[in-house]
């Protein structure tokens, strides 16, 4: 496991918010905001994989993009290896960008069809002015080899390749500048199962070889469990539970995590697990409920009690954080949290 006292985290977000303005009326004045990410505090240690799960529209992709500053946060801070990058200009960010990269869900859309594979992988070197032409040529060949593609692939175009191979090209490009952190946004969800396992194996291998950290965003909970050291569960812009992967799957405390886990189909017809069927869908992040968002969805009798409460993540067991929410915890857990004198929230201010 990771020793957070010995190793300062590579990435820390603190109370991070990303809101998108909603405009309406004749004058297109701002009439509201989509609170896509609404106060997220988390950290990632060097060499660690943090899994991020949640339903579509919960804000997980927005959070991933904000972390690598493809989006500008509305408030809060993002500290990457001692530097607060949340408010840096694009120009100031550029030299830092080599340390954090991103892999996208659909490699067909994130790779330029008019560029050869060589120019796609070489581009980061050109942008950062690294190496001579010959050195870059050599590096591209090494990278292709590292991700399991033949050198001959370099002179072809991305659309000539299958989904799995294109994802390898995307990984090679992300690896080019030897980053410390890669945000993987649903990297295997568009792939067939046999190809999916090839890419997962490659990601694990690369992590071990280069000491990479991953923020691994996915909706497939079995995949997330497989690759992550810790898992954060996101619901309507907020993290509701965060714990070591084994713990969260063995002993989920938040009602939403429990429902999410019970919904995973088990690939064994002899096993029949009791499912917690949720009614309805994720509520709109434009006008989120005043109290517990999940309590509101499931119509919890204690919903009114949750209005006005600070539903921040609180440590319930060593390394196991859960939102202090009366609607989503067992009676016992809720009492335990309420009685604990000083809730430890992961603020690194």
């Amino acid at each position: 496991m990771f020793n957070f006292i010995m190793n300062p985290p590579l990435l820390t977000t603190s109370n991070l918010r990303v809101h998108f303005p909603v405009r309406g009326g004749v004058m297109l004045r701002q009439t509201g905001a989509v609170r896509a990410v609404d106060g997220v505090s988390l950290d990632i240690a060097p060499g660690e994989t943090l899994g991020l799960v949640g339903e579509s529209g919960c804000g997980k992709s927005t959070l991933g993009k904000a972390v690598v500053r493809l989006l500008k946060p509305t408030s809060g801070s993002i500290r990457f290896a001692e530097t607060d990058i949340s408010r840096l200009s694009q120009r100031a960010l550029r030299p830092l960008r080599r340390d954090f990269q991103m892999i996208f869900q659909d490699p067909a859309e994130s790779l330029d069809p008019r560029m050869s594979v060589r120019s796609i992988i070489e581009e980061p070197f050109v942008i950062h002015g690294i190496g001579s032409r010959a050195e870059r040529h050599q590096r591209v060949n090494e990278l292709l080899d590292r991700v399991g593609l033949p050198t001959s692939a370099a002179e072809r175009y991305s659309f000539e390749f299958s989904g799995g191979q294109r994802q390898r090209i995307g990984i090679a490009r992300a690896l080019a500048l030897k980053p410390k952190l890669i945000v993987c946004d649903e990297p295997v969800s568009a792939l067939d199962v046999s190809i999916q396992s090839q890419i997962l194996n490659l990601l694990v291998e690369l992590q071990q070889d280069f000491g990479l950290s991953y923020l691994f965003i996915a909706h497939d909970l079995s995949v997330v469990k497989h690759i992550s050291d810790r898992v954060a569960v996101m619901y309507l812009g907020k993290i509701v539970e965060l714990a070591p992967a084994e713990t969260i799957y063995r002993d989920p405390r938040h009602a939403y995590t429990k429902a999410l886990l019970s919904a995973i189909p088990t690939p064994d017809p002899r096993v029949r697990r009791e499912k917690i069927l949720l009614e309805g869908d994720v509520p709109s992040p434009i006008d989120p409920p005043a109290g517990s968002a999940f309590g509101h969805r499931i119509n919890h009798p204690r919903y009114d009690e949750s209005i006005g409460l600070d539903l921040a993540l609180t440590e319930i067991a060593p390394g196991h954080m859960v939102a202090a929410d009366p609607c989503c915890l067992s009676e016992e857990d809720w009492r335990k949290l309420r009685l604990s004198p000083a809730p430890q929230s992961p603020e690194f201010e």
Binding site: V204, S222, K225, H226, I227, S228
Partner: peptide
Amino acid sequence: KGLLHSIPTLETPSKSVLNTIPGMV
């Protein structure tokens, strides 16, 4: 067999090497 063994389940040890089917259809 290849299909069945290449999916990670909640019981698969974390970060263990998954079975793969080489190539593609």
